[in-house]
Amino acid sequence: MTTGIEARSRILNHLRDGLGDTQPLSQEDDIGCVADVQRNYEERIQQFSHMMAAAKADVHRTTDRLWPELLEQLLREKKISNLLVSLQKEPGKRLAEYEPDFVLRDTGDNPLAIKDELFFGTPAALTTCRGAIAETGSLVIWPDAQEPRAMSLIPPVHFVLLKARDIHSTFADVIRLEGWATGMPTNALLISGPSKTADIARILAYGAHGPRELVVILVDDEAN
């Protein structure tokens, strides 16, 4: 749906008139480039962890077998007694089998129905991610019905499971290798640390509107 039909045509006409003899440029006309940095598997992990730590996120490297135990320990240390997780996804199922000493709360089928719970009664959530970017220390997340957008935003502590082999070198690599241009989701996110602000006298404070803590559980398959 487009509104303001007259405004639309006037604006486009102004722009077309304004083009004059301008020839459309193509990508081949571009000059300059982004410095090309190639990183191997271990370097990607190191760079990712370094950038995340610089943004005050915690990264814990573990194995596929040990991560539920690690998560349990982290929750105990943070004195968090319940965790929001999708029991329909693999990590949720794993946790349910593991029978941890904290309460597992399922996101269910209708994310809109858990809005109040998210705002007022969810101390922490665990989500998966699609991958990560080493260069900037960013998690790539495409929220869905089981792991909705609000899950990585509203709870004060956000745990993320990341498989080490899913860490790409750059954002440009992610876009190209995963063919993003052929189909974008409703919402794609890069998350590069806990929420923060420096709007008061340039002093950095964490937990502005989103999570105060971002904890990445890095599952390293190669270490198995």
Binding site: L112, T186, N187, L190
Partner: peptide, 30 residues
Amino acid sequence: QPITTYVNMISSPRQQGEDGPEEVHLILLD
């Protein structure tokens, strides 16, 4: 900053079963 905490890419209103807004509007200003 090498990147901001959030890069938020929005391509549609919420789809069946998702959260997010039911309607998304874009106003292009001249």
